[in-house]
Write a protein that binds this DNA or RNA. Structure first.
Lengths: 355, 355
DNA sequence: GTGAAAGCGCTAACAG
DNA sequence: CTGTTAGCGCTTTCAC
């Protein structure tokens, strides 16, 4: 073992400074692009840093300016359910990762069973400064932690409409549900079930609203028996359909969340109902599962990757004190496959419907 | 706005110390469970901290001991492919999240297109100290960054066998592939295709080895035409099958990686081959897609959640300088569904085969 | 422009 | 057992 590479101690800004023949503060300012440094000097400093293989210690920087370059993805959902979803979570992270690369952030995960744990997490993030901000998914109508967020002035971007004065990125859920419902109506269905999610999730409400609007605009009377509610899980969707389907007259289901689609299909099969001949199906949220399920599932592609991307961008701006417009709405496409009774054209037909 | 909660400045250990009426060092030692502190004193300090809502600043701690409590998940794979996978990545993160909670670590993601970027990432992680260690997936035979890891003495646990002297967690891939192949052999198949992955991934090699062993033990001659190779992507699996199937005589395929299953099914359908009547299928790696695909896919459940859990545990030990046994092998189950020609019994039949 | 020095919050020596 | 103090690596006044 040669001493050269093994006894290598930490290379600090001091080393760089002396290598470059300047003072420490000069080096620091050079790195941080302060205007008071001559281009020449900066050149020299950068060169020295390069030669020495210098990287600023994150902790020291964080200690000084009270900011880490870590941002969190806070997912308050039972882990089995976020992980059933074949599309949402993956695409989301994909988009966040893309943005984080651009902004030089690290992306950290916090997955918690219930939102009860959130206030504590935020308090801790703020106090320990190990996270500069968080993207929070699944906003609810009864968020108990908003006071904490405000009190600490903690940067947060919601993924979904919090229905409160916080920045968020979301689809236009009402429009999306309306689009899905109208697709069914266009196929001649009048008795359309809306399989919604828990009523305390804001997305459940706005999507239901879209369903109602679609019916109204087509002069279809609302039958409360056609509005079902299931948890965001395959299992609960399964049992909800199994329980309600036999005692209600309907010819189509608008499934409000991607995680539910498997359960619906499974239940209909058990009940001996053919898709789409007996029951037409459309799901809000696309996934590979939709593409491979039998029959292939017509779905609304929510552009989840973009959702993640913009949420991260927005959070970054927030952290750096830049002005951010409070909301950003992401478009959606209708992906026509067989479950809704259309003639599928190899791989599904995509229509951009919402911008 | 009352001054009380808004002018709240940072609560430091100093505040806690004075509140508790002790010296700063005493407080620090109390928090860190040093033996030299009397239970009484500690009690008082902890109480004061509680009252004040004190949380140690992560950056300061990191600065002192040169360790963050962040660990990374480093995934050197094209993002579209890790995200096609409906099971692997999600379950992995699920397990890592569970372990990270126990060990008090934050979990950070680093997804990179190619392994070329890895040395730089490790150098940076080590130098900036923003990551205390990493779990690296998809080890290859040609890992160009191992020198960097060793040089920096950077804690790494591989997810998969690196075939080198580094700690890792993995399935027994040879046994797993043998199990899958034998299942097909047991169904009377003699001309079994092995759809492998890129030859530079260590898992591709060990799985192929299992296939070969299974054939050998059943006295089936190896036909090189039956060994196909496709990238870890739906698309490439699709085109590989489409290209090879017409010119080869076979009755079953052992699919080596979960991400490939969709492509195989799609190609066979295009070719007009029935599953399982014309071609029986089994896939290494289970997922919800397998469960819902038509026909349901027989698969080997790799217990990916556990893989993630143990990798994280091991990495944590490594970081804290504890002894770690170099490898940990996770069990696997065979999930019998229809694609392999079995009579499926509602939801698939699970057999624990490997421990 | 540049350089010396203070200080971010914490831990670990080292005296008491 | 407790208190004082130096210092982790960096940024940022503030004089020069």
């Amino acid at each position: 073992m040669s001493n050269e590479s093994c006894e290598k101690k930490n290379i600090t800004i001091k080393d760089v400074a002396s290598e470059a023949g300047v003072a420490v503060s000069t080096a620091s300012m050079a790195f941080n692009n302060k205007p008071s440094i001559s281009p020449k000097t900066r050149e020299v400093v950068l060169k020295a840093a390069e030669d020495l293989g210098y990287h600023p210690t994150a902790a020291a920087q964080a200690l000084v300016d009270g900011q880490s370059n870590n941002i969190g993805l806070l997912v308050p959902t039972k882990i089995e359910n976020v992980f059933f979803s074949t599309g949402f979570f993956n695409k989301l992270i994909s988009g966040m990762n893309r943005a984080a690369k651009q902004t030089g952030n690290m992306l950290s995960l916090q997955i918690v069973d219930s939102q009860k744990e959130i206030p504590e997490l935020i308090t801790k993030a703020k106090r320990t400064k190990n996270l500069s901000g968080s993207i929070i998914t699944h906003p609810r109508v009864d968020m108990n932690y908003l006071d904490t967020v405000e009190e600490y002035d903690y940067p947060v971007v919601f993924l979904g409409n919090p229905l409160r004065d916080f920045p968020f990125v979301d689809n236009d859920n009402t429009a999306v549900a309306k689009l899905a419902t109208n697709h069914l109506i266009d196929h001649g269905h009048r008795r359309i079930v809306f399989l919604g999610g828990p009523d305390n999730l804001t997305a459940s409400r706005t999507r239901k609203e879209g369903y109602l609007q679609a019916l109204k605009e087509s002069d279809i009377d609302l039958d409360p028996d056609l509005i079902w509610e299931a948890e965001h899980s395959e299992q609960d969707a399964y049992s909800t359909v199994l329980e309600n389907a036999p005692r209600v007259d309907f010819s189509a289901i608008c499934i409000s969340v991607e995680v539910q689609m498997g359960g619906v299909q499974r239940a209909l099969r058990v009940l001996g109902l053919d898709i789409p001949d007996n029951v037409a199906l459309i799901t809000i949220g696309d996934s590979h599962l939709a593409e491979y399920m039998e029959p292939h599932m017509t779905a609304v592609d929510l552009h989840t990757e973009e959702l993640g991307y913009w949420a991260t961008k927005k959070l970054n701006q927030l952290i750096h004190g830049e002005d951010v417009c409070r909301k950003k709405i992401i478009g959606a496409d209708l992906i026509v496959r067989r479950s809704s009774g259309c003639n599928e054209q190899g791989g599904g037909f995509r229509k951009r419907e919402i911008d």
